[in-house]
Design a binder for these strands. Structure first.
Length: 963
RNA sequence: GGGCCUAUAGCUCAGUUGGUUAGAGCGCACCCCUGAUAAGGGUGAGGUGAUUGGUUCGACUCCAAUUAGGCCCA
């Protein structure tokens, strides 16, 4: 007989662990990052899966300026979750991150810097490119660190950069392909042009913002009417007839070549009395007559034969179609303006008569081509009128508006002038209003070789998630114009074409192209600006067409969307480890127009196939109210801040908890909730670890059935359900289901039930008893499984737990070789059918309803101060008959199940019992448990006091201690 | 202005092909425990399903419009 201590606490097996409750993530994470780094975990994952089925997620390159924002974090974490999951599933899934390095924003920053230093005009293009390169490199490093800090695994040492020599050589190679196949052409076309940045802008580079512009109504005097149509204008030429056009860009009138009417609308001839016995006739679309006349200050003359001064009278109405071909006089230039027809004319505002300047508008251009009009644009690249514009030469177009209005007034061509605020295109960088201006540009034809049609067909072969992504990109590709690929800037990949100075033809010889590509590979794109044109040509080269021997290099650069668009070729296309096409692209939904599309166009153009099998899009990060983040609203959440205060893990949890298909909200409250959820998961792991402190890490699976521990079998079954749910969630990219399943498992199944019930067994049983060991084995299964299930999301914590398990197991000198060095080297859990027991779980659903009712009965007694701890209670159940079998099967387990000291079942309805509402006929009576409280296990028992050596403990405890 | 999308408790999410009183967890309130303790347990109160119409015997679920928000484009 041992000497019994009064301090029974020492005889208990209470949990022990050095796994801290407080995560201190912002400090612990860097240690874990260091661990991954030092142990080369990412590389070892790749080694381990080498030769297995590949699963390639191709990274869309973020732009290398600024620090990463929350959207970047969202995107990379989502990618990381997929890559880690696939890797643990045994797929070969290396992740090669990339950066988009060229383009205007960086050049802009460099320009600003050079301007500050006062040397902007002194640096040549090579020097400027050097500055740009340095700038990009700086931010690649910064962003790389930011991404790495999020716990994202990847080839951070060998990312792809669109400015690397190898990459630019591929850009040229792919571009050359388009040239050789005849896609590339050059033409004058109005493009968005920023006069401040002196460049053409892609559609993606244009932002719409409110701008105040003049709004003017201009008269175009009818000069001649086509033969046979004279009858339309009875009064002509006794009274002057005017087509009235409305515009908010007076300066484009300088390039006016036509007036456009809608063929199907009717137009009124309106006779107005302008005083002193003079009349004029205005032509205006019928639907806007009232509005316009009010604007102009004329009143209807009603039934009078002739309008008085300030009055108007409709004298005829004609369909737009019939007015085609009438010639007007330009209001202030000696030129004619032809009346033409177009469907794009609307009657939303204006006069239903659109002034057409084919060199300064998209619709104008299209209709101009149709009517064979000149694509006329007398404006230079800084937005100043050229000498073609006569007296306006040298004036900045927006400033010239006032002067033009003045001229119109003097020429009696202006009916009305006012200010007008409307949505107007602005440059995305300098935020200044842009103009439409016809310039020589390079294009990739979207119709050539049926490119559009082939792209549309490919779109239907891709798996778009969410499904509406298909409709979105389909509509965009269906309607998009040819791809303008030229930019008049310095920081980019040059359009490597060489022009013959005498015949203006471009050299398209394989030999020349290959030479250029080779020199790009050796140096980088700078070589185009370093070498003279002759150095790219064989010595003594003569133009094949005209025999000329003087050549010049094209100095435009390529649209950056072309750079990133060919990443499939430059990255996954050449890396032997990777597969083409990629299994998945994953970006924000804005990339339907951007990268998804440029990638599709280039891939279909050069390889005839989409570069991706699946395209997953996520929404945008918005604030707690669902509003977009902006500096002006002050609702921006910076990932660096969250990492600092809460840890990257919380950010990762946030990404996984939200359904990313929609907009993703982030707010202080959301982060607080997630931090709490994190703590719960962490504590559940900690408790599991604590109770494994003395586990021997032997396999007790055989004993699970042997000792028929139903609650452990239930737990194992629940665990299989969890594996199934989580796996299917990962497979379907429903990461928020991963979070919810894991979290609910921790809270509902584990913390509030299984672990709570288990405490008695874990703490009070003999350490080495079979019951306790089996339970510990189950706890170990649960912990190990949960850790692996959460690893793709909660990477830091999973690793921390894993290392803790490993350490413990090692100290037991058992199974050491079975526990991998990192959780990411372990395999993803698989459902083990042997533990899957649906029938058992169903039975337990019934038991849980009973338990919930017992709890209600206990709670009532607690409120009455009849009891505190539920172990003080004995419950008497009066169940409906259908529960009899179940209750008798589980008879011995019931006290533990309810965490009370005794359970009695009666067939007599007890007095003063709690009557269940959930289960009709079920009654629960709560009484004080008989006997006394055992000072060791805290259960109440009549056996307490029976043992002289230890009068304060119960029989069960006595046996444990004395045996 | 056009295209695509979203709208369920304070928060994050479930709700099978339209069919009883719309579920879960968190948070909140109250209580218990003090052997997971800057933890743990219990009970409870929270929803005119954005609004309005329509289809239907019946709508959170289908349709339309409106409102709010997001992305893309003009």
């Amino acid at each position: 007989m041992s000497i019994l201590s009064k301090d029974y606490k020492n005889t208990l097996n209470l949990p022990q662990t050095d796994f801290p409750m407080k995560a201190n993530l912002s400090q612990r994470e860097p240690e874990i990052l260091k661990f991954w780094e030092e142990r080369k975990i990412y590389d070892r994952i790749q080694e381990k899966n080498q030769g297995k089925t590949p699963y390639i997620l191709h990274d869309g390159p973020p732009y290398a300026n600024e620090r990463i924002h929350i959207g970047h974090a969202l995107n990379k974490i989502l990618k990381d979750i997929i890559v880690k999951y696939k890797s643990m599933k045994g797929f070969y899934s290396p992740f090669v991150p990339g950066w988009d390095c060229h383009g205007l924003p960086i050049e802009h920053q460099v320009d600003k810097k050079l301007e500050l230093e006062g040397i902007k005009d002194k640096v040549d293009i090579l020097e400027k490119r050097k500055h740009c390169k340095d700038y990009a490199e700086t931010f690649v490093d910064i962003q790389k660190h930011d991404f790495w800090r999020l716990g994202v695994f990847g080839d951070w040492k060998i990312p792809y950069l669109t400015m690397s020599s190898r990459y630019v050589a591929y850009i040229v190679r792919e571009f050359t392909h388009f040239v050789k196949e005849g896609y590339v052409y050059r033409k004058r076309k109005p493009v968005h042009w920023c006069p401040s940045c002196v460049t053409a802008l892609a559609e993606a580079e244009v932002e719409y913002a409110d701008k105040e512009s003049p709004s003017i109504y201009v008269k175009f005097r009818v000069e001649s009417i086509p033969e046979g149509k004279e009858i339309l204008f009875d009064e002509f030429p006794r009274i002057e007839h005017y087509f009235v056009a409305w515009t908010t860009t007076p300066w484009t009138l300088v390039a006016n070549l036509a007036l456009c009417l809608h063929p199907a609308y009717s137009y009124h001839l309106v006779k107005v009395n302008i005083g002193q016995g003079r009349y004029e006739i205005y032509i205006i679309v019928g639907k806007l007559l009232d509005v316009c006349m009010k604007e102009f200050g004329f009143k209807s003359c009603r039934d009078k034969d002739v309008p008085d001064v300030g009055e108007y009278q409709v004298i005829a109405t004609w369909g737009g179609e019939i007015l085609e071909g009438i010639m007007c006089k330009h209001p202030f230039i000696d030129r004619k303006s032809k009346v033409i027809l177009g469907d794009f004319v609307t009657v939303g505002e204006g006069t239903g008569i659109v002034h057409i300047a084919p060199g300064h508008g998209e619709d104008d251009y299209e209709i101009g081509l149709k009517y064979g009009l000149d694509i006329y644009a007398p404006v230079d690249d800084r937005g100043r009128f050229t000498k073609e514009a006569g007296e306006l030469e040298g004036q900045f177009v927006f400033k010239a508006n006032a002067k033009i209005i003045e001229i119109l007034k003097n020429k009696n061509s202006l009916i009305k002038e006012e200010r007008f605020i409307h949505s107007y295109p602005h440059c995305w960088r300098c935020k200044k209003p842009v103009i439409f201006r016809a310039t020589e540009q390079w294009f990739i034809s979207i119709e050539h070789n049926g490119l559009r049609k082939r792209c549309l067909e490919e779109i239907d072969r891709v798996n778009w998630i969410p499904r509406w992504g298909r409709d979105r990109i389909y509509g965009m590709v269906l309607n998009r114009p040819d791809w303008c690929i030229s930019r008049q800037r310095a920081w980019g990949v040059p359009i490597t074409l060489i022009k013959c100075d005498s015949c203006s033809g471009f050299i398209k010889e394989e030999e020349v192209f290959e030479g250029i590509i080779k020199s790009f590979e050796e140096k980088d794109a700078d070589i185009w600006f370093i070498k003279s044109v002759d150095e790219f040509l064989p010595s003594g080269y003569k133009c094949k067409k005209c025999g000329g021997n003087s050549f010049s290099k094209e100095m435009d650069i390529l649209d950056v969307w072309f750079d990133s668009g060919i990443s499939h070729a430059a990255v996954i296309g050449i890396d032997k480890r990777l597969n083409w096409p990629a299994d998945i692209y994953l970006e924000g939904s804005d990339q339907h127009r951007g990268w998804f599309q440029s990638s599709l166009l280039t891939a279909v153009g050069t390889k005839g196939k989409a570069p991706y099998k699946t395209v997953l899009t996520h929404g945008f990060v918005v604030d707690g109210q669902g509003k977009k983040m902006s500096k002006s609203l002050g609702n921006v959440v910076a990932p660096q801040e969250v990492i600092k205060s809460d840890g990257a893990e919380i950010l990762r949890l946030w990404v996984s908890a939200k359904d990313y298909r929609d907009d993703i909200r982030i707010s202080k409250e959301i982060l607080e909730r997630l931090t709490e959820a994190y703590r719960k998961i962490r504590n559940t792991c900690r408790f599991l670890l604590g109770n494994l402190y003395d586990f021997d890490y032997r396999d007790y699976s055989y004993a699970l059935l042997e000792i028929d521990s139903k609650i452990d079998r239930w737990a194992m079954s629940r665990l299989q359900t969890l594996i199934e749910t989580v796996t299917s969630a990962y497979e379907n990219f429903n990461f928020h289901e991963v979070f919810h399943a894991l979290y609910n498992f921790c809270v509902v199944d584990m913390s509030s039930f299984y672990l709570d019930v288990l405490k008695d067994r874990l703490y009070t049983f003999k350490p080495g008893s079979m019951e306790r060991r089996v339970t510990q084995w189950v706890l170990y299964q649960i912990l190990s499984t949960m850790t692996r299930l959460m690893a793709p999301v909660l990477s830091f914590t999973a690793e921390e737990v894993w290392q803790n398990i490993k350490q413990r197991a090692k100290s037991k000198e058992q199974r050491e070789e079975d526990i991998e060095d990192s959780v990411f080297l372990a395999s993803f859990p698989e459902v083990d059918e042997k533990y899957y027991d649906q029938e058992l779980e169903k039975k337990w659903d019934d038991l849980f309803v009973l338990r919930s009712e017992v709890n209600k009965a206990l709670e009532i007694k607690r409120a009455e101060k009849f009891l505190g701890n539920s172990l003080e209670a004995k419950v008497i159940l009066y169940p409906p008959e259908r529960y009899n079998a179940l209750l008798s099967e589980y008879r011995d387990f019931l006290p533990a199940f309810f965490i009370v000291s005794a359970v009695e079942i009666t067939d007599q309805s007890p007095d003063a019992s709690y009557k269940s509402r959930e289960i009709e006929g079920f009654e629960v009576k709560v009484e004080k448990a008989s006997g006394a409280k055992c000072q060791r296990c805290w259960n109440w028992s009549e056996s307490v006091g029976r043992f002289k050596e230890a009068p304060e403990i119960c029989e069960r405890c006595y046996e444990v201690i004395s045996g």
